[in-house]
Computed example of a mutant assay.
Amino acid sequence: MSVDPLLVRARGLWERLASVPVSFAPNGGVRVVVSAESGLCPAGWVGVVTLGGSAIVTAPSEDTAAMVHDALTGLPVEAVADADAVREVLSVARVLGPAALAYVSADGFRPVDPGLLTVERLPGEHQDLRGLEKLAGEEDTGEAGLEEITSPAFVVRQGGHVVAAAGYRVWPGRTAHISVLTAPAWRGRGLARTAGSATAAHALAADLLPQWRARVPASRRVALALGFRELGAQLSIELA
């Protein structure tokens, strides 16, 4: 059986973020572990990540892990990161996600020709990025997480103002977690694809694994256009 290097690297990242020894079952299935320090979800929540037909789940306590194990192992793997399916078997107060997890290799990357657009590089803390966040609004800004990037920001301007930007934060396992944000009035014009392409190219040149995590269909389409492959999903669950 051939091994998918992209899947191996992606799984290695989330196994490490679980903060306790756990691995994705090679033949599918759900593995539940106790991890109070899990990086799969907010503190005190249940974290679910599915990749390549297998899932790992972290719970904050033994009792919660036992309950979650009994509930989720009765579901098909593809359903354990489905908020509606999870609500059928667990008492849920809130969820974050699900978000698709997509990755790209150097061989699969499809860069975008910016054409007449100019992609400018700015420091990640540049004040012009904060101006874009004001245009985008609190919800979209929080979803993008542009303020967390550790790479340069790759931006597109119109009328002197930054209207689209992308960058990445270096995660464990040499992963580049990509953030993309476009001002509402400028969406649907390929600007996110242009900025995202420059960001992914920068990450690949540094031998990092680009990760695109997205809930919004438009963002997922941008990633797919750049050659990213959706390998799984992430869901965080706060139990009632």
Rank of each mutant, 00 (worst) to 15 (best):
S38F: 02
C41H: 06
A43E: 06
G44N: 12
W45P: 06
A55Q: 06
A55C: 03
A55T: 01
V57R: 00
A59F: 06
A59M: 03
S61L: 05
E62F: 12
M67H: 11
H69V: 04
A71G: 07
V77K: 07
V77N: 08
E78I: 05
E78R: 14
E78A: 13
D84M: 10
A85E: 13
V86A: 01
E88F: 06
S91E: 15
S91T: 10
V92G: 04
R94W: 03
G97Y: 06
P98E: 05
A106E: 13
A106K: 15
D107S: 13
P114A: 11
L116Q: 14
E120W: 07
P123E: 12
H126Q: 10
Q127Y: 14
L129R: 08
R130Q: 14
L132N: 08
L132K: 12
E133L: 12
E133H: 03
L135P: 02
L135F: 08
A136T: 00
G137M: 03
G145L: 02
G145K: 04
E147L: 11
E148M: 12
I149A: 07
S151M: 10
V155M: 05
V156Y: 07
G159D: 12
V162S: 10
A166H: 02
R169K: 15
R169P: 01
W171Q: 10
P172R: 08
P172Y: 08
P172M: 11
G173Q: 11
T175H: 09
I178N: 05
T182S: 07
A183S: 13
